[in-house]
Amino acid sequence: MGSERVSVLELTLFEHSEASFLRALDEADIAHSRTVIFSTAPQASGVKEVISAVSDAMPWNAIAKVIVAWIEARHSREVMITTEDGKIFHVKGK
C-alpha cells in the first residue's frame, strides 16, 4: 500500500448559495458530502460540505471551473479561499 495523502477541501455554504453551488458541483460530477459539526460555542449559520480525494486525484481544475462559472452566473456572488498556510483569496463577480 502506497503512502498517498488524502486532500480535503472544506466548503462553507450559506443560505442563498447552498443549492446553486451544490447543483454546480453535481453537474460537474464532483463528489461531495455534508459534514455535521457539533460545538458548544456559537457557529456561523453556514453548512459544511466536503470534497475529498487522494491528493493526486483532487479535481482542482474542475473545482476552479465550477467556482468561476458560479460567480459569473450572478455577479453579486463571492468566494473566499483560505489555504492551509493562512493565505486568503477573495474572488468577487464584476
Score class of each variant (00 low, 15 high):
1 M>L: 15
1 M>Y: 15
1 M>H: 15
1 M>I: 15
1 M>D: 15
1 M>Q: 15
2 G>L: 12
3 S>P: 12
4 E>A: 12
8 V>Q: 11
9 L>M: 12
10 E>V: 06
13 L>Q: 09
15 E>W: 15
17 S>T: 07
18 E>M: 09
19 A>W: 13
20 S>R: 01
21 F>V: 08
21 F>D: 06
21 F>H: 05
22 L>D: 03
25 L>Y: 01
25 L>G: 03
27 E>D: 13
27 E>I: 05
28 A>R: 04
30 I>Y: 02
32 H>A: 13
32 H>Y: 14
33 S>Q: 14
36 V>G: 10
36 V>Y: 08
37 I>D: 02
39 S>K: 02
45 S>F: 14
46 G>P: 03
48 K>W: 08
49 E>C: 14
52 S>L: 10
52 S>G: 04
55 S>N: 03
64 A>N: 15
66 V>F: 04
67 I>F: 10
67 I>P: 03
68 V>W: 03
69 A>L: 09
69 A>W: 04
70 W>C: 06
70 W>P: 02
74 R>M: 04
74 R>N: 07
75 H>W: 05
76 S>R: 08
76 S>L: 14
77 R>Q: 07
77 R>V: 09
78 E>S: 14
79 V>Q: 02
80 M>H: 10
80 M>G: 05
81 I>C: 06
81 I>Q: 03
82 T>I: 02
83 T>Q: 03
83 T>D: 05
84 E>I: 00
85 D>Y: 09
89 F>G: 01
92 K>N: 06
92 K>S: 06
93 G>Y: 02
